[in-house]
Amino acid sequence: MKEIFEIRWHGRGGQGAKTAALLLGDAALSTGKYIQAFPEYGPERMGAPVQSFDRLSDKPITIHSGITNPDIVIVLDPTLMKSIDVTDGLAEDGHLIINTHKSPDEIRKEFNIKGRKIATCDAYKISEDTIGKKIPNTPMLGALIKVTGLLDFEKMLKDTEEKMQKKFSGRPEIVKGNIESMKRAYEEVKQE
């Protein structure tokens, strides 16, 4: 395994790209890893393209530069791919994980992507079924773990459930829906 794994999240303002990065960082910490999770700060508007980042490592992380060559890119909104090159800086053997109902093969052809390992997951559908709203960030966490094996999925589910129970105390249906969405994405993600 690489010394430090770097992850970039692409989303639109309000989709939870920052929250996803923080949730992943927190979950990774609970499995004993060293972590960094940080958003890109610029003008923040609902619907505008945003990015957030994670670093995960088994050793202390001292680097504090931005991430320009991630190992993994996650796209929370497929329409972003029409205006942004989400593969920018992504390692040749890196993972590109996209929220879309399309197959990896369809995406590869549509956007003419060379190299990289593409995975797709219909996180809108999953979150509508489980949470009742289009919230792609938590299901995409499940997809990420399935594709990369970065963390122990059971441990991560448990940790996320505990954190959400604190945050949404008195609203158990939200916690249940989010956990269910992660499990379904873990099962349903399509890989090349």
């Binding site: 923080l22 960082g25 927190d26 910490l29 060293y34 972590i35 960094q36 999770a37 940080f38 958003p39 700060y41 202390p60 992380i61 504090h64």
Partner: peptide
């Protein structure tokens, strides 16, 4: 602390 780089970066 350095703005955003540390102030808004989650770490162990």
């Amino acid at each position: 602390v350095d703005a955003f780089i540390i102030s808004h970066s989650m770490e162990r």
